[in-house]
Design a protein around this nucleic acid. Structure first.
Lengths: 221, 221
DNA sequence: AGGATATTCAATAATTCGATTGATTACTGG
DNA sequence: CCAGTAATCAATCGAATTATTGAATATCCT
């Protein structure tokens, strides 16, 4: 029979799985979901040496998960397809829901995640429609520019202290960032609540938001 | 910073990815998507030794992807969660769409896949509603019993030659099986078309069908 | 053209993975 | 309680993966 052909088929698919079966490469993908970046930026953000990051990126490229475009002297890596973001989101979802150890690791990484109120996408949309809710994107400005939730205002975490006074006091301020594995929104929320305002966190990042069929905007608002 | 906690988090998630980063384990998952099975059945269906299949199953179990229930002397493995089927489907989709090598391997394994007409879920539903389309599930009877497309009739590939005469000649006969990596529906279609009937293949299996929000039935019809 | 910068390549050593074999454990049925 | 079957465990060896280091390319800018 064609056991040979079958083995080869599964072998090929497994190579894609092997490409994502490494913590560093997952972190690279997690960054690239937010915005394209150069090798150096990626290495810095993920605390890897440039050579190491480069090799991992090439592994991802060979598996068809990312694409590198040359822009002058730098190479800008980006996801090869939105399906890659879905794959990463699905993998993370399975890991978080099926393994208690991941929950524990997440508690370690986001110690405040159970202290602050969260809000669902549906409740958020309703609040924005009513006009009594403000949606803050606290990621770095480049990531906001590369795509953000429709209706969000950019306020990178570093600039938030300076802008805190400008925020209205009579609305619910919802923060979001890269997604459930990101601490930015928690840290922003801490400042917002400390300032006496009402706040909540949206767990979803841009990938999860889009996956659920919600609108996304490009460029700055 | 909490680079340590972050590393641990990605490390944990990568372990789930490592669990699916092996061709044999992918084949086991592909089988389990269709129906629960014993270790021996899985070993037989995937051409592995029992000891080897057992070890791979335990790896999947440790990653929270499958669950083994004891039924007397045998242990019946099943998917831990429908999200696992989604993860496998998403991985396969990325592999097929991003890597030309996978396309070629698929052509090797399903040489007839471009020769026969295919049908979309939407067209299939319309045809069934009109009453001029018959949907045949050509998988083994146990898999049909564990869950099948709503409205399908079971006719395992082995029994099809004997039943071919009973099939009506004036309707479109649509075959489906485990999904895009399965040859059963192709082989059934070959017989059906050779008998002078009109036929088409549905590429979707039960997992893809369900993922698209379509109804599924349990037990036999 | 030539220096500077970003990225990749090549080689190495430590670790992990995977198939096989034979022994062991868990349960059923008599 | 004992024989028989299903599944797992343990130990082994060969193969694959990974981080690190230093060298090699490719492109830009003057």
């Amino acid at each position: 029979m064609s056991r040979q052909a079958k083995d080869q088929l599964f072998q090929q698919i497994a190579q894609v799985a092997q490409a994502i079966a490494n913590p560093h490469r997952l972190e690279l993908l997690d960054l690239l979901v937010q915005a394209p970046r150069s090798v150096e930026q990626l290495a810095l953000a993920s605390a890897m040496s440039v050579a190491n990051a480069s090799q991992h990126l090439q592994r991802l490229k060979r598996a068809g998960l990312v694409i590198g475009d040359r822009h002058g002297t730098t190479i800008r890596y980006r996801l090869a397809d939105p399906a890659v973001a879905r794959l990463w989101t699905e993998l993370r979802g399975v890991a978080v829901s099926q393994l208690a150890e991941v929950e524990r690791a997440l508690d370690q990484y986001r110690p405040q995640r159970r202290q602050f109120p969260t809000i669902t996408p549906a409740a958020l949309r309703a609040g924005i429609a009513r006009g009594d809710t403000l949606l803050l994107d606290v990621r770095p400005a480049e990531e906001f520019a590369a795509g953000h939730l429709s209706g969000a205002i950019s306020s990178p975490l570093e600039e938030l202290p300076a802008r805190l006074d400008e925020l209205p006091a009579d609305v619910l301020i919802v923060t979001y960032c890269r997604g459930p594995l990101c601490v930015y929104a928690d840290e922003a929320l801490e400042q917002i609540i400390a300032s006496g305002r009402r706040g909540a966190r949206l767990e979803e990042g841009i990938a999860e938001w889009q996956l659920a069929g919600n609108p996304v905007e490009l460029l700055s608002a």
